[in-house]
Amino acid sequence: MTEYQTNAPTDAETIQDTVWEQEIAFIDSVPRWIAMTFVFVVFIGTWQLVTSFGLVSPIILPTPMETLKDMIFVGQNLATGGYMLVSLWITIQEVIYGFALAIAIGFSLGVLVGETAFGEKAVMPYLVAIDTMPKVAFAPLFVAWLGFGIESKVALAAFIATFPIVVGTAAGLHAADENARMLFKTMGASRMQTLIKMKLPTGLPQIFTGLKIGAVGVMAGAITGEFLGGGKGFGELIRVAASQLNTPRVFSLILYLSVVGLVLYLIVQWTQRRVVFWQKETVGSYDG
């Protein structure tokens, strides 16, 4: 038997702690909101400097103050139910209908392409081909087919947003691994059961990624549609303001429009958190 020696210090000894200063990067010690405010202030400051020293013409770039004033004006018009609210509501409708349509078509096509061999072999190549085209170029066609009303904008918005949803759904349906497939086979699951109880839930993260990209595209589609196809939406307001060289108005309209886009994106993200509750937060989400 050997005596075990321990490292316990005898009374005579004192322990030297091996604690050392750990370097913490400066940015890690700064709260996020301070860092973000910093960037905001630098941005506005540069803007103010550039405009107040007359480096660019006020027609090209208004001062931050002018923009803010106009934003307040537009905000009042929106809040009091003025003509801008009517326009905004038209655009919001286009976005909602366009997104709903894109989800319905994109999801169905995604299932067709992701689940059936026929879809993958015969349909997917066409989808890829169309997807590589500049979809905005189809806008005049939609106007010719559907007129200058809301329909042509809905169509373009849906057209742009459909493809990411198809891709997301198809990729999602392929996400289940060999083990899960084999397991369902051993349980005697039908194709429908495998799809609904395994492949779709497994693919939800990818499907939602497609929806998020689609949500961004649907906004772009609606506004482009309004630029190219007239009507009475928010895009038309922007176009008119720009043609009158009312740059502050253009800026503030864009800012309000981006709020709509952001809300749509956040709704999708919120739904994702609810539905795909098991998914770990990934890089790119804004709550650390």
């Binding site: 691994d177 083990n179 395994m198 497994t202």
Partner: peptide
């Protein structure tokens, strides 16, 4: 199988 493959 080698993996537990529980559904999350």
């Amino acid at each position: 199988f080698q993996q537990a493959t529980l559904f999350p």
